[in-house]
Nucleic acid binder design. Structure first.
Length: 569
RNA sequence: GCGCCCGUAGCUCAACUGGAUAGAGUACUUGGCUUCGGACCAAGGGGUUGCAGGUUCAAAUCCUGCCGGGCGCACCA
């Protein structure tokens, strides 16, 4: 890509002037008056035993007269210990816009991943439970990581693991049968199961005397025979159908979905082997993995009553993943609160001989201003409720702006904006930050929001639409881009590939959301100051080319965040 | 008790992983529709980066010790 090549050219020239070893670390000056590209001379000065500022001055002098660099830079000067480069606008424009034109939707992609096969497991839901905004964070983050790794040249495989077989299932079925009202309500059954489960947990906490009944239901389901087993199969499917409707709405898809119920038998076999190998042992009636000597405490595997705990299926899942898919790496995207569990799980897998690369990517939870979400207290916001609130607000807003639009059109745009907003809110802060989700704030669409970005995109498109096709015939004269804001925009889109690489290396989509926001900010400023369509023909053509390039970068960035560009708003 | 995370403007967050004057959004004050879409733009005030030491040319960032908050540590997932 353009900037990469430019850096290589500087490096080549420097090597001739003053041979050095090691990497050159480039950065970008805090403001454009200092330069466009910068090389801090601290490291270089150390190896040469020189004063950094002095070295910078000396190098600036020599590089300025370097014939190889002359056409790329209008100026090279030392500012204190920094060696600053001013890139020639015409060259910057031709290089960057050329890159974007040839790469198109793939602009920004790189091959850093070396085609390594990485499986990314996320959205590990429980059937029969509510789908709340915590799950939304997991899905948004997982999907963005998947797309980010794919853009960085990994063969990324998104998968999900659904827990359809725990005690929560029995609780739900118990309550479903005693409250016939659930079966009669109009909402999706999968959604109602969640409500039914929440109610069941509350009630069982207050009335422990029902626990035996629930236990009986669990045993019956496990025996895979009888009315409760039948209801399990049926309700499990309701939940799964509901999950899929959410996945479809959020435009995420999985190559494979694993189910706990299908992994249990294989897991039990593995556990038996591990016990003979001495990796697991009995203690206080339960079967445990004693990991004290690794500083990882104890992980119970099988309850004293003989029933399986969570790790049983997880062990089977891990081994199946590696056996069937020949992975180079396996990534789990799960709430940070399970980090100890994953350390324990990975240690057992290590003892089993799976010396493959296992990685637990964490993110912190989503809470509410009123405090921690808990089904028990009813203090939760489900995905469905949040979506409804956003939709309602957006529908009134859009209808007001476009009284002439059909209801269908309004609904389409509103739904896409609602989904963009939900994802963007989940991705714009670092994964290690707790999100205190304020619904009122989320309903505002000003500032650092998905709507702001979408609005910028819509305006870009609007300009292109009004320009018509004729303006794009022939080669634009990019030397007409002389405005300082145009140069700033060109620099910004030139840096997009670096952002993708950096966000990918750090598993950090928020670097991308921030970048896209800044790009739209720059454009909005430019848009207000400079007229594009009314400019003289040659200038207009150059500016339109820039506009199209910006739109392409925005669209590519949206794609990685799992956001679909708005068709209007 | 042990381990992990967080603490930066009133609030929500950044700071390219040790570099230039710590930046955005929001809220507040003010200005801008004869303008390619005002969900917009411009300007202003707002900081002892929780506290105290240390490491070095350079610390919000690294080390040590405190303070405050959160989470996790045997039959939940």
């Amino acid at each position: 890509m353009f900037l990469e090549e430019l850096k290589l050219k500087i490096k080549a020239s420097l090597e001739i002037i003053r041979p050095f070893s090691g990497e050159l670390v480039f950065s970008y000056p805090p403001n454009s008056e200092l330069g466009d590209l910068s090389l801090a001379c601290f490291e270089l000065a150390k190896t040469q035993q020189k004063n950094p500022a002095e070295l910078a001055r000396e190098l600036a002098e020599k590089l300025t007269v370097d014939q190889g660099l002359k056409k790329y830079f209008t100026d090279i000067k030392a500012v204190g210990p920094y060696l600053n480069f001013f890139i020639a606008v015409a060259y910057l424009a031709a290089g960057t816009i050329g890159d974007i034109k040839t790469a198109g939707a793939r602009y920004g992609d790189n091959k850093k991943g070396g085609a390594k096969k990485v499986m990314i497991e996320y959205s590990n839901g429980n059937t029969h439970k509510e789908h709340h905004i915590g799950h939304l964070r997991n899905i948004s983050y997982g999907d963005a990581i998947y797309r980010l790794l794919a853009a960085n040249g990994y063969r990324a495989i998104p998968v999900s693991y659904i827990n359809d077989f725990g005690i929560h299932v029995a609780k739900t079925i118990w309550n479903w049968q005693r409250r016939s009202s659930y079966a009669e309500r109009p909402e999706p059954k999968g959604y109602l199961l969640g409500k039914c489960y929440a109610e069941a947990s509350r009630e069982l906490a207050e009335h422990p005397e029902y626990k035996e009944e629930v236990g009986r239901i669990m045993t019956e389901i496990e025996s895979r025979y009888g009315a409760n087993y039948k209801l399990w199969r049926q309700s499990r499917q309701w939940s799964i159908d509901y999950f899929f409707s959410i996945y479809q709405e959020l435009n995420v898809s999985f190559r494979k979905i694993f189910y706990e119920s299908e992994l249990l038998d294989a897991g039990l076999k593995l556990v038996a082997e591990l016990t003979t190998q001495g990796i697991l042992r009995k203690s206080e009636g339960a079967l445990i993995a004693d990991l004290e000597k690794y500083g990882l405490g104890i992980l119970p595997i099988i309850r004293s009553d003989g029933t399986a705990l969570y790790p049983v299926a997880d062990l089977a899942l891990a081994s199946e993943k590696f056996k069937k898919y020949g992975l180079d790496e396996s990534i789990y995207i799960v709430d940070v609160r399970q980090s100890l569990y994953f350390k324990q799980l990975f240690k057992i897998l290590d003892l089993m001989g799976y010396r493959k690369s296992l990685r637990h990517l964490t993110y912190d939870f989503v809470t509410l201003p009123e405090g921690m979400m808990a089904s028990r207290t009813g203090n939760v916001i489900t995905y469905r409720e949040l979506k409804a609130k956003l939709l309602e607000k957006l529908m009134t807003e859009i209808t007001q702006r476009h009284p002439d639009w059909s209801v269908d059109r309004v609904t389409d745009v509103a739904l896409n904006l609602a989904i963009s907003t939900m994802k963007f809110e989940m991705l714009k802060v670092g994964a290690e930050k707790i999100i205190t989700f304020n619904v009122e704030e989320a309903l505002k669409f000003d500032g650092y929001t998905a709507c702001y970005l979408q609005y910028g995109y819509v305006r870009l498109q609007s300009i292109v639409r009004k320009a018509g096709f004729s303006l794009f015939v022939g080669r634009p004269d990019l030397s007409k881009l002389t405005d300082g804001k145009e140069k700033a925009l060109l620099m910004k889109i030139a840096r997009y590939p670096e952002v993708i690489a950096q966000a990918g290396a750090g598993y950090n989509p928020s670097e991308l959301t921030k970048y896209l926001f800044e790009l739209v900010q720059l454009f909005s400023d430019y848009y207000h100051e400079v007229n594009i369509l009314k400019a003289a023909t040659a200038v207009r053509r150059a500016r339109l080319t820039l506009v199209k390039a910006i739109a392409q970068v925005l669209k590519n960035g949206f794609g990685i965040l799992g956001i679909k560009e708005s068709a209007g708003m």
